[in-house]
């Protein structure tokens, strides 16, 4: 069964001048952890706002739990949880007050659904009397997640929950999501961090309002069309310059301590020839190895 479904959704701004969402169709299965991966301005937030009935699409249809986002908006609002990209809780209410407020608005109590948020709320409990506005970024994020969960939603929409968050807190957050998934909640999450894509069951890569691909992370990696190599040497900036100006190199992008490259013609121009070229340019400590592409490699390849 599909918990979320979009068919040919289009959303424009400025009287059609800006196409934020351009003919987007996809669906999310019940209980699935689905990721929407793309940069700022790719259209992720518009899609979230359409699905949570906060924004009307120009055309196309969409449904959540089988309910239409336009006709049945009241039903959807009762059943989904939404954590917007921007912190949207009441800054001048305390942690506990915020949580109680959201429970009451949804006609329930904190105690009724406490089991769902317990693992997360325990970390907040020592600060339950602190105003939400005075919490650190990581704690705000946890409180927002608790508030989005307190009515036991069937589908959880998380719009860039980890943007601007450090590596340690990001790891913790994804652990929390795994726990929620085990409770049977369908989760749609967006992120600009490509490394988080592999933590989802299926992902859609989005750029300029269009989906570039949609599949499991493994399958997307398998569809990378070329053999990918990682190269490094003692002078990385000189190495990059040489690689970029070499006719035999199809693509060259920096990835931390290596440059990732593909060849125009992998068979004709062997790795050995490249090593010779680099050696004659006086580069030292040359290393070249065949590697499995990351989601970021795939994203860049699809953008070109």
């Amino acid at each position: 069964m599909k918990d979320v479904e979009l068919n040919n959704i289009v959303k424009t701004y400025n009287k059609g001048e800006i196409k934020a969402v351009n003919d987007v169709s996809f669906s999310v299965d019940k209980g699935e952890l689905f990721g929407l991966i793309g940069a700022d301005g790719a259209g992720k937030s518009s899609i979230f706002r359409i699905l949570t009935t906060l924004l009307l699409p120009d055309s196309g249809t969409a449904s959540v739990n089988g309910a239409d986002v336009i006709k049945d908006y009241k039903l959807i609002r009762k059943n989904v949880g939404y954590m917007p990209g921007k912190f949207s809780l009441y800054q001048d209410l305390s942690v506990a007050e915020n949580l109680n407020f959201f429970a009451t608005v949804f006609n329930t109590t904190v105690s009724e659904n406490y089991d769902l948020i317990k693992e997360i709320y325990i970390q907040l409990e020592p600060f339950k009397n602190r105003r939400a506005g005075k919490l650190s970024g990581g704690m705000k994020q946890k409180l927002a997640l608790c508030c989005a969960l307190i009515h036991r939603p069937t589908v959880l929409f998380l719009d860039e929950p980890t943007t601007g968050v450090d590596v340690v807190s990001r790891k913790e957050f994804w652990e929390m999501l795994k726990g929620l998934k085990q409770q049977g909640i369908t989760i749609l999450v967006s992120t600009p961090y490509m490394d988080e894509a592999t933590l989802c069951e299926r992902i859609a890569l989005i750029q300029n309002g269009r989906l570039m691909t949609i599949d499991t992370p493994d399958n997307i990696v398998k569809q990378f069309p070329d053999s990918l190599y990682a190269v490094r040497a003692d002078n990385m900036s000189k190495l990059q310059h040489i690689l970029r100006n070499n006719q035999q190199i199809k693509s060259c992008f920096s990835f931390g301590d290596y440059h990732h490259i593909t060849f125009q013609d992998d068979i004709a121009y062997s790795q050995n020839e490249l090593i010779q070229t680099l050696q004659s340019a006086n580069l030292k400590d040359i290393e070249i190895k065949h590697i499995t592409p990351s989601i970021e490699d795939c994203f860049i390849n699809l953008m070109n």
């Binding site: 793309g38 940069a39 700022d40 790719a42 943007t163 601007g164 600009p192 490509m194 750029q207 992008f253 920096s254 970021e296 994203f299 860049i300 953008m303 070109n304």
Partner: peptide, 9 residues
């Protein structure tokens, strides 16, 4: 923060 992988490079 938030920019696409090519622009980032």
């Amino acid at each position: 923060g938030g920019v696409d992988p090519i622009i980032r490079r």
